[in-house]
Design a protein around this nucleic acid. Sequence first.
DNA 1: AATATTATTTAGATTTGTCTAAATTATATT
DNA 2: AATATAATTTAGACAAATCTAAATAATATT
Lengths: 219, 219
Amino acid sequence: MNLTAAEENYIKSIYKLQDGQAVVSTNAIAYELDTKPASVTDMAKKLKEKKLIDYEKYQGISLTAEGRRLALQIVRRHRLWECFLVDKLAFSWDEVHEIAEELEHVRSEKLINRLSEFLGNPTTDPHGDPIPDAQGKISKSKQLVSLDKATARRLEVAGVSDQSSSLLEFLHAKGIRLGTQIDVIERYEFDNSVEIKIRNQPAFTISEQVSKNIMVKTL
Amino acid sequence: MNLTAAEENYIKSIYKLQDGQAVVSTNAIAYELDTKPASVTDMAKKLKEKKLIDYEKYQGISLTAEGRRLALQIVRRHRLWECFLVDKLAFSWDEVHEIAEELEHVRSEKLINRLSEFLGNPTTDPHGDPIPDAQGKISKSKQLVSLDKATARRLEVAGVSDQSSSLLEFLHAKGIRLGTQIDVIERYEFDNSVEIKIRNQPAFTISEQVSKNIMVKTL
DNA sequence: AATATTATTTAGATTTGTCTAAATTATATT
DNA sequence: AATATAATTTAGACAAATCTAAATAATATT
């Protein structure tokens, strides 16, 4: 199965977003890939044709077994290159994503397996995410952190540690719910407040109390 | 100047083929890139637009100073990756070209400069070709070898060591002249004859006597 | 110099991946 | 249940890179 870089990016995004969820929405993929929902629909048809995703109009998208297999290969490549950049070329963990984003599309099993060996067959990348082995086996993904301690820019809300209705009400009003993707725009040291942004809405700031109680995972 | 992978491949080929020559022909580029002359004409218009080549209809193609600068960057990336693959990942010199062909398109100066440093700032790649430095300085290209000793598959005729008219006549009849690109199809041990192929013609075999007297360089 | 051959370009089509704007379907709210 | 809002899809367009077939220009041969 030979994929273009664009197809690989879609497969990888669907894999990232699926995680637990039964299906992934068109909009979520569009947001993740910084493209338009119409483009996602177009690509969904192609990937369905190739039997890499299950897709029915308006019903969301999920990977097939084959799609998942390929996704794991791509994730493996990406994370191994991140290791290489950090361990061997002395990049810092926050600089490597973009470059790995390009390197991951170089398709050569031999290359990747030799690279893995060269790096000492690492099992996690510099961000703590697990690296699938050559057979596609991957250990459990990172556990959750509270939003005030998270380091990544793009996060997904995975739970709340305080179930008080006042917090839930606040979150609801702000449009934050389980699975919502947020971008951290800025962290203000003087009061540990965090400026975040959701999908199409303008950015807003939340207090430390709130951010301590939102559990997130990196995407 | 941001180039697509396709544009980079054209620039690199033109650089390779130019070497001494004043201009490069549409056909030569098409052959080098395994594409059609019509496609080369199309791309020539784009690259002229971007001021990377000088090009007038029917008059051949040559790099501008800016084009040459970019070509050297691409060559640098390609050759450094080849070094990496051979020195660090234990590939053999004949396996690396294809993979480096993909890696070379990952555009990040920082990446390439760090890679160079990591490899000990090598000045030649595993095939003996010189690696341009970060400023685009490159030492003279490899000296010539006789065809019977050459190892690469694709070669360019750069001279003959025997100037006898019988040899020149033979070469002329076969369509071999200075600058002709040839592909080595097979080398036969029992008599050291070499089967070669030129552009659009069927393959043919030449004897050891002849191949000893054809001086070639790798492209 | 006329003709044949080869090289190159043009015209028009195709594929991939994307987009905008409009239409449709699903979901939420009253 | 009706209506408003949000999500998704369709239709039609576009740019990049390529192709084939036909036309044109350059070069070689007689």
